[in-house]
Nucleic acid binder design. Sequence first.
RNA 1: GUGGUUGUAGCUCAGUUGGUUAGAGCAUCAGAUUGUGGUUCUGAGGGUCGGGGGUUCGAGACCCCUCAUCCACCCCA
Length: 448
Amino acid sequence: MAKLNTPQGTRDFGPDVVRKRNHIFAVIRQAFERFGFQPLETPAMEYTSTLLGKYGDEGDNLIFKILNNGDKIYGQAQMAKDSRELALILCEKSLRYDLTIPFARFVVMNQGKIHLPFKRYQIQPVWRGDKPQRGRYREFFQCDADVVGSNSLLNEIELLQIYDTVFNTLGLSGYRMKVNNRKILTGLAELVGRPDLMLAITIAIDKLDKIGESGVREELAQRGLSGSEADKVMEFISLQGSNDEKLDRLTQLFAGSETGLKGVEELRYILGSGLTSFTRQPEIDLTLARGLNYYTGMIVEVKAPENVNMGSIGGGGRYDDLTGLFGLPGISGVGISFGVDRIYDVLEELQLFPETAQQGTQVIFFHPGAEKLAEVYGYVSRLRDRGISTEIFPDEIKQDKQYKYAEKRGIPYIAYVEDNAPGVVFLKSMTGKQRHQLTPAELDAFTF
RNA sequence: GUGGUUGUAGCUCAGUUGGUUAGAGCAUCAGAUUGUGGUUCUGAGGGUCGGGGGUUCGAGACCCCUCAUCCACCCCA
């Protein structure tokens, strides 16, 4: 037999895995719907030109490009001046890299048809040519909810509420929600006196929990900050205390930065509106930066419980001019994303999947032999009509084989008839070891 | 993309400093036993030792390349 494999970083999902994943999808979808988001799906592929340049240079390299069909590509290849242009010419289409950019493309394309504010959710796979490792795949699902066309901070509050709802419903009570505001980071750069290095500073401080204070210092120096400038950054990120304490302290620090103060006020409102309460209070994390540079307001990242080694399992934020990339300026958006595959890994590790997420067939009938098949099939049909997942073993083989099949499949009930007991259905619980002797009418009324 | 790890039957792994026909447990299949299955017994099938090349009289073991895997970095969900 030939050695078969799925491409690197992709996986098959067996029956029990699909069931458990569906449980996660259902919880997320239900929350999205409950908050009034509408479903949207976009194609697996987009024009390469739509995607290129939206995720930074690294992102461009990670986009899976699709070779053009047809036999003209050899000639086309001659026209390219460099490899970047080659990719554009040879690969007009690419697999989607996230759900946000395709959504922005959709909004711009359909600006005449959609009513703002537009709230959509999208649950689809995305593809990234990253090197796979734990919690990182080349094909994985994202579940996004975004609102475009509204500047209200109420959206931020609701989106955080969705995170809270979903993770609690999934039983992942130890999750941690970190929030920050891009304006605060801008304020920091102004405070330091290096607004030009805002991006460099955020990239450096984002690594604090990984490389420590000394590491951040080195990184800052490498990126061109002087010692005293770095001191200010370090003072800023070492702010401790409750959310309110941090906000109060920031208000003092940002006395000279209008942008910084704006960011503080936004967070103060989002976290202290009093409109709702969180099971797990979001925590202000001044080192939270998030890579995508289109964020402009609140940013949020969800981390797995501390005892699980897994990066972020969700993230999002506000972006003031996403559609501006496609020529439609002035529309603000805010959104969040769930990383289902990582959430799956975390729930699996913590054994948080409920039994019900695993339930498939409830009852299996043994094959009764040709003469009684019609009678038994009648029982099967009636159970199915009641909405009970029912199987009949398709082959007439020794009963002990059929038992083993039922046991392997984890089917909770087996049923059979016997020649010497006409009109009786034997129903046996595989777990409780009880055997019921039922008339057809009693079977119809039986609660599984 | 950079660095490292691992890769022997469907699964988990043995396999001594390179040396005869590559093993075990579990699983699978067949039969027996079990007076409705889970027990027990017997037997069988199944491996181009990830793939390719090289060193050697001889390679599952050593070297190179490649593929996959896991981990760290980068980045991210």
